[in-house]
Each structure stands twice: as structure tokens, then as C-alpha cells.
Write a protein that binds this DNA or RNA. Structure first.
Lengths: 212, 212
DNA sequence: TAGATTGTTAATCGATTAACAATC
DNA sequence: TAGATTGTTAATCGATTAACAATC
């Protein structure tokens, strides 16, 4: 957190992976690790790992390496995992269900406060104890419940409309599963999970392998 | 497809986005588009778009631009979307359900032939007409049904074991939703969807915005 | 033909890797 | 102290952008 200048997206997307492996090492009661050993686990070069970490401070010790638990904690803080986020899911279809049921997100501090949908059949039911509400209530609910993150699991044709409502009610982060590039103001962050793009990339690579 | 040398992953991951926007343009009956206009839609620079496309051939025409339908077709072929892929889903939990129900994958040629699970309660049920089978039958089923892609929606602790079975039965492509880096031979392709890493990246960016 | 826009080469920028002095 | 391994600077590599001749 020391360095003031912008850390590149390439670095940031590697951090969760470091965090995950360090968590696994903790479970296995490993106490220390060198950049060389982390390199073997993650597949990134030792040099890159040291460069990445030094964007945020010197967490290691010469001749020793890194303390696993300490580094895990530091990365958790850097990733913003040392607090609770209130979230809402919009779209109670299969994907909305899947995410609402994903226990490990809750463990990391991402709390699902409500799920919204338009279909009368699902409004009122509960998913893992979380009530499905009418999407008409979305904006009021966000304002009254300090929601940080909106998770869009709707069809693509309504995703922008939902994003607008989220933004207007003060949500600063959107996790978007709709295959659409949302337009939002500069102070709002969108993280996309474009499953179709991922699948098409797989299909491309599959084709490449076969043609060789 | 002309150029023989390796196209970078950065380029490949942009192709599905071009493909998507071209599809939308077709729906709106737009016939031609310039790299400049595509740049406005996608957010990539016109120069980059021309560079990207020219990895695979000259699809445009000077003074005119690109024919939307033609370019869409070409990209479809490049991405390997001009054929059908047989897939199986392993794990009939919420995520497995969500993917099995995702109609648009089927439309692009990704056919789900079976779903596998270990739980006696779900074995035998049908999801969108697709039978849930005992995971014990996985390897035989793959061999008998020319399965191209295995979609792993299991908990992380069994994901490697499942990947091994897929590989041993001849699957060449794995779409992995488990938060784990799978070890597979060189001739097998893995495309990961690591939702936790995506969420943590969002949380990082959210923190950055707030701290400014 | 004149105007537009590609395809492609060259220049720039940024990210990764290598090297090594600092130091635990 | 000697050995190990970091933090950091410099060198390399690759990806993006700019520029423009080719050409429809």
C-alpha cells in the first residue's frame, strides 16, 4: 500500500492466485516460503513474484523468504478482504441461485443481502435463507441497506437498465455475468465474467491443438 | 488462418468480443463497418483491431472497411464455432445446473450430452432433458460418445481427480470452474473460470476507488 | 478521379526476466 | 561468518500505437 503509483491490472489479477496458494500452504502448516518455491506452485517466475509483491511493500526477508501467514494477511488486506461487503444479486435464475449458494464467498466477507427478480413465481421464496424480492424494490433496498456490490445475473437485454439502477442508488461495484459491456460512470467498477467469451477461447485453443 | 506463427493469447481473448459485436450489428442489419467504428463499440483502438484481424488474414477492403456478415463468419471459423462439440458436465450442483440450462451455449454448438454426480439423490433426474448419471460411468460414457469437452463444476478437492479421468478417456478440452489449477498433459487445453479470483479483483478495484 | 480505409512497417510503450548488491 | 534469498535496477522481450503507402 506504500507505493502511490498505479499498479498494473496484470499484477492485480495475479494477486488472488498468490492469496489462494498461501491459504493452502497455511492449511498444510507451512510457515515460510521463498519466491522460488512460490514460482513452482503458481507457474509464475520467481522474479515476477518478487516484482509483483514489491509493488505493495517489502514483505520478505533476505536469506529467509516470506512468512506464509503474514504474506497471506497482507495480500488479504491489499485485495480488500479484511472487511465485509454487502451485495445483492439481480436475477434469481440458475446462475443467481448458484452464486447465492456459493458458501465460500460469504466466508470471505461477501454477504448476499437480497436477491431480486421480475417473475412472480420466484418473488417471495427464499434461497439459503435469503429472500427473493421484486426488482421494483431494488433501488430502495440498496439505499436502505448500504449495498456495496451488485451482482448482475439477468439476461443481457436488461443488464444495462439494472446497472443504471444500481449506479443511481449508490452501488460502486458491479460483478457482471451478462454478456454485455456495461456503461457506468468513472467512479463505478465493473468486473465482467463473460462465460461465452471464455468458452469461445477454449474452443479456439482446442481447434489449434487438433490442427497440429 | 494463413499466418503460421503463434498468435498471442492477448489477441485471442479479444476475438470473442469482436464476434459478439458483429453478431449484434448483424441483428441490427448493419452491413459494413470500419475499424474506427468497431473501435468505438469495443473500446479497443482501430489500429489494434486491424492488427488483430491481420493475424488471420486480410478480411477488409481499403476505402470500404469490413463486411459485417463476412467478418462474423470468418471469426466464427477462427474460433472454431463452425462445428458441434459434445460436452459433459461433472457436478450437478447449482453451477452445473446453471450451465446445463444455458441455452446460448447449445446454440453455438456446445451440446451437453450428460451430467455426472456422486449424490444418489440427483442421479437419475433430468435437467433440461439431460440425464444425470453416476460419476462411475464417466469414463465409459466419454469413450462411447465422442466427448470433446469436460466441464468441471465439482468442489475443488475432487477436481484434479475428475480432470485425470477426463484426460484418460480422451477429452482434449476442459472448462474448469473449480478454484484449482489443474495438471494436464500438453495436448489437453484447460480454460479456467475462477470466480473467486474475479471477485477478489473486483474487491481490490473497489478499495482503490474508495481510497482516492 | 478523390476520398476513405485497409494492411503493414516502424516507433513507442509497458511488462517480464535477468542480474546482482544488500542484508538477514 | 557463510549461505540464502530478497529488493531493485538494468536488459530484454512482447504488445500496442502511430504512421503511411497501397488500393479499393
Amino acid at each position: 500500500m506504500r507505493k502511490s503509483n498505479k499498479v498494473s491490472m496484470a499484477v492485480i489479477r495475479r494477486l488472488p492466485k498468490y492469496y489462494r496458494y498461501l491459504g493452502e500452504l497455511m492449511e498444510n502448516e507451512v510457515k515460510r516460503i521463498s519466491s522460488q518455491q512460490l514460482s513452482q506452485l503458481t507457474g509464475f517466475t520467481a522474479s515476477q513474484i518478487r516484482q509483483d509483491l514489491n509493488n505493495f511493500g517489502g514483505f520478505g526477508q533476505q536469506g529467509y523468504g516470506y512468512n506464509v501467514e503474514d504474506l497471506h494477511n497482507q495480500l488479504g488486506k491489499i485485495l480488500g478482504l479484511n472487511r465485509v461487503y454487502n451485495t445483492v444479486i439481480i436475477g434469481a435464475g440458475n446462475l443467481g441461485h448458484a452464486i447465492a449458494n456459493y458458501r465460500s464467498f460469504e466466508e470471505e466477507g461477501f454477504k448476499v443481502k437480497a436477491i431480486f427478480d421480475v417473475e412472480p413465481e420466484v418473488i417471495g421464496i427464499e434461497i439459503r435463507g435469503i429472500k427473493v424480492r421484486d426488482v421494483k424494490e431494488l433501488e430502495d433496498f440498496i439505499k436502505e441497506n448500504q449495498i456495496d456490490i451488485g451482482i448482475i445475473c439477468t439476461p443481457k437485454d436488461v443488464s444495462q437498465e439494472i446497472a443504471d439502477k444500481l449506479v443511481n442508488s449508490g452501488v460502486k461495484g458491479i460483478w457482471n455475468f451478462a454478456p454485455k459491456d456495461l456503461k457506468v460512470p468513472d467512479d463505478v467498477v465493473v468486473e465482467n465474467v463473460h462465460l461465452n467469451e471464455s468458452l469461445f477461447t477454449l474452443s479456439y485453443m482446442l481447434k489449434e491443438r487438433i490442427n497440429r
